[in-house]
Design a protein around this nucleic acid. Structure first.
Length: 382
RNA sequence: GGCGCGUUCGUCUAGUGGUUAGGACACAGCCCUCUCAAGGCUGGUGCACGGGUUCGACUCCCGUACGCGCUGCCA
């Protein structure tokens, strides 16, 4: 994409903040385009039209041999259907098609890989190359990515920016992997492939022809695949960053506590932005109980059971996973219920949620004091 | 309107004349299990339509429909 002529460069030019070097670069580009325009003028390819410069089409068939689309014959002989394109406006600014060709020429581009939306523009670009006596580059037009509603995903769409996924706690490797699966396939039913492998087996010739709808669900799944493979420390670092940016005050807790807490969440979430809701209970005593859970588990029948759990846990000498598990199981046995019957109310009392990390592990991390406190608080609500 | 491109489960795709049309995501059910997730198993849904060509078409050809792109003094 020709940077200096693209988008809002014109606006920037008018501002005082534009640096001298940028101004200079702009000047150089302008001179460059002028030179090529002159060349086209000298060879009779240009005519003026109300102050604008237009390129006179040779009016021939242009046969494009696209690396992914194959041979396509464009008939440009009819001026009514293919008018001569403008390449410079009366105000001196340049048209995309022209600068696009010049920039590629100047940079000695050998292969142009771009979206299929440019397919129909390509014969026009080829005409300019030829008029300049240059050989056009190889072209590869790749399928477009569509939004869920079938519309073309453009750079304006929020979901089309990588930052969007970074902000949402997606892993770069996963996003990259997913994107590669759109319009291309390794053909051996693999979905998760690391980038080195893709680079090894990728071939432009194997790009598909039809556009692909972006599927957030599949990206979400694939991200989980990558997230589960993170090392403990990688997971920890990313989790801490996400939690802090979400306003969770991790600094109020000992590092070991944070580490232990996060370790119980590893492999349980697909993206990091799910984390605050998933493990927030570790870092605040002030949480709400899930209403559905309350209706289901904070029942008169469960109250004595929860009380029994509280009492059993409160007399534990060693408050670790093994002891907790044994205690809960024996408590359930003596109550004559399945362990699930006391696990659910306990989890709700201590985390406010019906889902979360392994209960035994999470209790150990929270510590006896906090656990008993929270169960007491829960008991007082029903 | 003209020109160009496309069309295999809801989605991403494998498939290049003879397959029970395969996989993955999502969905449903079951198993496992302290919940969830993961994992295992099972299930349903697909070759846009109509003509050809052929002994035989998802696969080749033509047409139709639908979708998309280009058709700017947008990029």
């Amino acid at each position: 994409m020709p940077g200096i002529t693209a988008g809002n460069s014109f606006c920037e030019l008018k501002t005082r903040t534009l640096s001298e070097t940028l101004k200079k670069r702009w000047q150089e580009r302008t001179e460059l385009y002028e030179r090529y325009l002159k060349k086209l003028q000298d060879s009779g390819h240009i005519f003026e039209d109300q102050g604008a410069m237009r390129f006179r089409s040779p009016r021939e068939h242009v046969i494009l041999d696209d690396v992914v689309c194959g041979k396509i014959d464009f008939d440009l002989s009819n001026p009514a259907t293919h008018p001569d394109m403008t390449i410079r406006r009366p105000d001196g600014s340049w048209i995309f098609h022209f600068v696009n060709v010049i920039d590629d020429l100047e940079m000695k581009i050998s292969h142009v890989i771009r979206g299929e939306d440019h397919l129909s523009n390509t014969p026009k670009h080829i005409e300019i190359f030829r008029a300049l006596g240059a050989t056009p580059p190889h072209y590869a037009h790749i399928p477009l990515i569509l939004n869920r509603d079938g519309s073309k995903m453009s750079k304006r769409d929020e979901g089309a920016r990588v930052e969007y996924y970074i902000r949402r706690g997606y892993l770069p490797a996963a996003v990259r992997n997913y994107l590669c699966l759109l319009g291309w396939s390794p053909k051996d039913n693999r979905e998760k492939i690391d980038i080195d492998e893709i680079i090894r087996i990728f071939d432009l010739k194997n790009i598909g022809r039809s556009s692909a709808t972006f599927d957030p669900d599949k990206l979400h799944w694939l991200n989980g695949e990558y997230a589960r493979e993170l090392s403990d420390s990688e997971f920890y670092d990313l989790a801490v960053a996400k939690l802090k940016s979400s306003g969770v005050k991790l600094d109020d807790f000992p590092e070991k506590y944070v580490r232990d807490a996060l370790q119980t969440c590893k492999g349980k979430v697909n993206t990091f932005d799910e984390l605050p809701a998933y493990c927030g209970f570790y870092f605040t005593d002030n949480f709400e109980y899930n209403p559905e859970g309350v209706a289901r588990h904070f029942t008169v029948e469960n109250k004595p059971r929860l009380k029994a759990v509280r009492d059993a846990l409160s007399i534990l000498k060693k408050f670790d996973v093994a002891e907790i598990e044994t205690t809960l199981k024996s408590t359930a046995a003596s109550l004559g219920v399945k362990v699930g019957a006391i696990v659910h109310p306990t989890r709700l009392a201590v985390t406010g949620s019906n889902v979360g990390p392994s209960l035994y592990h999470l209790l150990e991390v929270l510590g006896k004091e906090k656990v008993v406190e929270r169960i007491d608080r829960a008991l007082s609500t029903f």
